[in-house]
Design a protein around this nucleic acid. Structure first.
Length: 675
DNA sequence: ACAAATACTATTTTT
DNA sequence: TAGTATTTGT
């Protein structure tokens, strides 16, 4: 037998159109030029991690790799999109053909393609966590665990128990014992509930987020499928590897082709998804998974000023677990980050708004600024202020558009068209009808399982004068939707015609919700068919406020408000970190558990390292509560940093804005030249 | 069997 | 404070 000699891909001395050497530092270049085989890139905050991935994609394609055979796994689909956009602009359109997205998205594609191997039909529906919780609630009342059982865990707790056990690959017993020991006396019921939950999902052809990963793992157990899947990957690239869990690490191993061409990129100091089962130690274990892993470290920070970096390092120093980060910058020291103490929440909002005005007068565009916070609700007060001042903003994090009750109601009508076995969606739309409650709905669903045409609801024989009319209306709508080949937007418009009166009766704030539904219809124009619409919305929900701002006011690109989690990987010239209080960050729930406090600390680190030029940390001294005012303390992570690290700012009377009513001229900036 | 009213409780981050 | 469990009324 002849022996083949391995040749490096680049051997024919390729002519690159991109000047990689001129554009990248030596560590980045090493990662971009890395030929084949496993590689681990440890990239500190702001060290050009994304840039490196983008140029690597371009470089691989220039070297002759087939774009469709490069797999780029990212944490959000937005990240994948942006990376491929940027790659296309440095190279060419071929980059858009790269396969990419989240683990969940890629898994769902595989499952659709190979559904028969795991005993599923192609039309399974993906349910989000609130749907999953509804299922658990349904099963719990079926099993009568709510009756006279004192303190049985509520649906969200049950969900996180089950999800944790899946994601951390532990038995339900171990999870409950270590994290929910107050419910240990219910363990048998919980286990039984978990079993019927699994069974329910199979029977009704739905999958939750965890199932997408688990079933893919099961799918790849089949050697034939594994071979096919592996063979279509030439290169596997994984971003944000520190936020993967054990299952995802295993999936990466399975996806990797025989050539061992896999590169993972991440930063163990930025691991902030432990609550979701992510294990930041995964990244350090990567070399154990792949023999001969090449390790590359990016340490030069290009983003932040020296002073901001000093604060960031000081934050990280407090961690119980030590990180051997040696981030450095060649940028100037810059201004000292500000520490702003306000009397209360309102003053904090007014301070931020005031600063926005000042920055605007200095010609800083709004989209160079971001407001970050720990919890979705920490920005409520500020949002009121911004609305009054007519400052356009988009908010990331917090409740998603597709999670709002009225949007889910409309969507459920589409779901039963795509998957008539989706009992959850049926239950949702049936109980919307006056006179139909859980009992009647479940009777109807029972009848459907043996019926040829489940949409002909009057044929069920379950009729009562109280809901006859409503049921007929629904039946007509569904038959209409099934019969005609509507586009998603046409279908939604039909559903709204039917649903709007229900919405008005159900919600006090219906005007706002009806407007949402109009926006929903507008969005749906972009989708090919019902199935895609439903699936994309579940896997990549549209941010709630992004929709509002999409309408109207496009003259100025909006300010960004974001939870710290949703700000990962992004950067702005000016960053405000508000509500920086002990009990908020670190969250009150984490104190007492060293590992959890460490994760909060990393979260703080992520927040600080988002800032390029200037960082403002603010906190209110008094919190107005229901039972009187509470004095609060600044976050322990920055308390006692001293004036050499953070400059305390004093708020004086003349800094205050005039009352809103008298502020019409503010935007025209008549006091501009006061400097 | 369903709907409305009342009492209670636990309170995050996201695919 | 809002979402949920329980009780009461139709």
């Amino acid at each position: 037998m002849k022996r083949f000699v391995l040749k490096k891909e680049e051997t024919p001395k390729p002519e690159y159109t991109i000047d990689y050497e001129g554009l990248l530092n030596s560590a980045q270049l090493e990662a971009v030029m890395h030929g084949g085989g496993p590689a681990l890139v440890i990239a500190g905050a702001g060290t050009g991690k994304t840039r490196t991935l983008i140029y690597r994609v371009a470089r691989l394609i220039e070297s002759g790799a087939e774009p469709t055979r490069i797999l780029l796994l990212t944490f959000t689909r937005r990240a994948a999109r942006e990376m491929l956009d940027r790659a296309s602009s440095v190279l060419d359109e071929r980059c858009r053909k790269v396969k990419g997205g989240t683990f969940h998205f890629y898994c769902s594609q595989l499952l659709h393609q190979y559904h028969e191997y795991i005993g599923f039909q192609d039309n399974f529906t993906i349910i989000d966590s609130s749907d999953a919780q509804d299922v658990l609630n349904l099963l719990r009342s079926d099993l009568k665990f709510d009756r006279s059982q004192k303190r049985f865990p509520k649906k969200s707790t049950l969900m996180s128990m089950i999800s944790t056990s899946v994601n951390k690959q532990l038995s339900l017993y171990d999870v409950v014992e270590s994290e929910y020991d107050q419910f240990l006396n219910h363990i048998e019921q919980i286990e039984k509930l978990a079993r019927s939950y699994t069974e329910y999902k199979k029977r009704h052809k739905v999958m939750d987020f965890d199932d997408l990963l688990i079933y893919t793992l099961e799918l790849l157990n089949n050697p034939e499928v594994l071979e096919k899947v592996r063979a279509r990957h030439q290169h596997v690239l994984v971003d944000e590897y520190q936020d993967t869990n054990a299952i995802q690490a295993e999936l990466v191993r399975l996806f990797t082709p025989a050539s061992g061409n896999v590169m993972v990129v991440g930063d163990d100091a930025q691991s902030i998804y432990g609550f979701r089962g992510a294990d930041h130690k995964n990244i350090m274990r990567f070399p154990d998974l792949f023999q001969g892993t090449k390790r590359i470290t990016l340490e030069q920070n290009y983003r932040s000023t020296g002073n901001i970096l000093t604060v960031a390092n000081k934050v990280l120093e407090q961690a119980k677990e030590k990180y051997d980060k040696k981030l450095f910058t060649e940028r100037d020291a810059g201004d000292l980050p500000a520490l702003v103490k306000t009397s209360d929440n309102r003053e904090q909002s007014r301070f931020v708004t005031q600063m926005l005005m000042n920055l605007r007068e200095q010609d800083v565009p709004l989209n160079d600024i971001a407001i970050l916070f720990r919890n979705g609700r920490d920005s409520f007060d500020l949002e009121i202020e911004l609305n009054q001042r007519k400052i356009p903003y988009v908010k990331f994090g917090g409740q998603k558009f597709a999670e709002a009750a009225h949007v889910k109601d409309v969507l459920a009508h589409l779901r039963v068209i795509v998957n008539p076995d989706d009992a959850l969606a049926w239950n949702r739309i049936l109980t919307l009808i006056d006179g139909i409650g859980p009992k009647t709905a479940s009777d109807l669903i029972e009848w459907m399982s043996g019926s040829q045409n489940p949409y002909e609801l009057s044929a069920s024989g379950i009729v009562s004068d109280s809901f006859k009319k409503g049921l007929l209306g629904l039946s007509q709508l569904l038959i209409d939707l099934k019969k005609n080949e509507f586009t998603p937007s046409e279908a939604i418009s039909h559903i709204c015609e039917y649903y709007n009166p229900i919405c008005e009766k159900k919600f006090d704030d219906y005007p706002k919700r009806l407007k949402d539904l109009e926006a929903f219809q507008a969005i749906s124009v972009d989708y090919r068919d019902f199935g895609h619409l439903i699936e994309e919305l579940a896997l990549d929900p549209i941010e709630a406020t992004a929709v509002e701002t999409l309408e109207g006011k496009r003259d100025e690109s909006p300010l960004v408000l974001s939870t710290i989690h949703s700000a990962k990987g992004l950067e702005w010239r000016h960053v405000f970190l508000i509500q920086c209080l002990d009990g908020v960050i670190p969250s009150g729930f984490s104190v007492g558990d060293e590992d959890q406090v460490d994760e909060e600390l990393r979260l703080m680190y992520v927040a600080v390292t988002r800032a390029m030029d200037m960082l403002y940390i603010t906190y209110p001294v008094i919190q107005h509560g229901n039972y009187g005012d509470v004095f609060t303390k600044p976050s322990r992570f920055i308390d006692g940093f001293g004036e050499k690290l953070l400059e305390p700012w004093l708020l004086v009377e003349e800094d205050q804005l005039p009352p809103v009513n008298a502020s019409k001229q503010i935007t025209s900036g008549d006091d501009t030249d006061s400097e």
